[in-house]
Computed example of a mutant assay.
Amino acid sequence: MTYPVATPLSPSTRAPIPIRELLPWAVFFGVLMLVLLHFVGTEQGALTVFSGESVHEWVHDGRHLLGFPCH
C-alpha cells in the first residue's frame, strides 16, 4: 500500500505593515483602553459619568484585581 507524499510549499514572504496603516488602529485601541481604565478605576468616584451603583457593581471585582481601592 502506498501513501501520497505531501510536497512542502515554498515559504511565503509577507510584506511588513506600513506604520501609516497601523497607527490609526493603535490610537483607537489606546483610547479604548483608557476609557476602560477610567470605568474600572475611577467610575463612581470623583469623576463619575453615570449616577447610581450599577457601574461600580459591574467592575467591582476588576477593581480589586487591578489593585484599585473601592471601599
Score class of each variant (00 low, 15 high):
W58L: 14
H38N: 03
R63T: 01
L47V: 01
P16V: 04
T7N: 04
R14E: 15
V55P: 00
F50L: 12
V49K: 06
S51V: 09
V59G: 00
F29Y: 14
W25N: 13
T48W: 14
P8I: 03
Y3N: 05
T48S: 15
V55H: 00
W58S: 02
I17W: 08
R20V: 14
E43V: 03
H71Y: 13
S10Q: 13
A15I: 07
C70V: 12
F28M: 10
S10V: 05
H60E: 05
Y3W: 06
P8K: 02
V49A: 11
H60N: 08
L22I: 02
G45Y: 11
L22N: 06
S12T: 09
P11M: 05
W25M: 11
S10M: 07
F68M: 11
F39E: 08
V49I: 15
L23V: 14
H60P: 00
V40N: 00
Y3F: 08
A46E: 05
L36K: 00
H71E: 13
L34I: 07
F28K: 07
I17V: 10
L32S: 03
H38E: 05
T7S: 09
P4I: 02
T7D: 07
L37C: 09
G62F: 10
R63W: 02
L65Q: 06
S10A: 13
H60A: 08
G67R: 05
F50H: 01
P16H: 03
R20Q: 06
Y3D: 10
V5P: 01
T13V: 11
V5G: 00
I17L: 15
V27G: 02
M33T: 08
E57P: 00
S10H: 09
S54Y: 15
T2S: 08
H38Y: 15
T42K: 01
H60K: 04
S12W: 07
E57A: 08
F29E: 12
F68W: 15
L36G: 04
L22P: 00
F29Q: 09
L36Q: 06
P18G: 11
